[in-house]
Amino acid sequence: MRYRALVAAILWLTTAAAPGATPANDARAAQFKRLPNWTGLWVTSVWQVGLSGRPAGGEQELRENLQLIKAPPYNPEWNNRYLAGLQDKALMDSRNATLKACTRSFPALMEAAWQFQIATLPEETLLVFENGQVRHVYTDGRPHPSGDDIWPTPLGDSVGHWERDTLVVDTVARLSSEPLAPRAWVSMLSDSARFTERVHLVDANTLEDRLRIDDPVAFAHPWDITLRYSRVTEMSRMIPTNCSENDRNPIVDGKIIITQP
């Protein structure tokens, strides 16, 4: 009898002492089980590139497929500004010719060439890009910060929640001085821009982000865009991109050149 009691006491102590046995961890593990598995490497379907680092169809193919370079649904006032900007070909040629960008603002990051991984945790979902940028989407029920706890940043502030297997993301406070994306040099948004994303798995190798951009100051109506991502099957680990490692493309006299090693 004393032996049985001793065994029972030891069992109770070992299970009670195990880190995973606390009620909080049990609840977190249960939350984990409900989250979809989006592990692996993803890359936007627009940037399927080869050895040159450019899509096979070149610039024309890119311009046909990139969503964020299309004309936003501006209201008349903002559309006039947009059209006037398009006329400044010298400015746009200059910006295009000297573009060197190893980071992107949101939502351009979601249409960039960099691979990314997604970590779905109960408290937040992390989108980790190969260039080092990380999007934090908090899913613990918190609201956006208010007052002087929040200020415009290139990626804005994102909170989200799960609707079954769809991650719904709400992003505000995106820095309005940033053009919408490379090539969209005169596509600007106001400080009131709000972004809603519905991210879900279409099939085992396709992820979709249905993005709605709503800007009551600049737009005549919300802008709906669908971004698609393909699973990277040729590699199983992320190889980080570091632009400063061997940058042989300085800008000299307004032009990008190649330096000798």
Partner: peptide
């Protein structure tokens, strides 16, 4: 789009 040419992950 009225723009010149390309840009990708690092430079135009």
């Amino acid at each position: 789009g009225g723009f010149a040419s390309a840009a990708h992950a690092h430079h135009s």
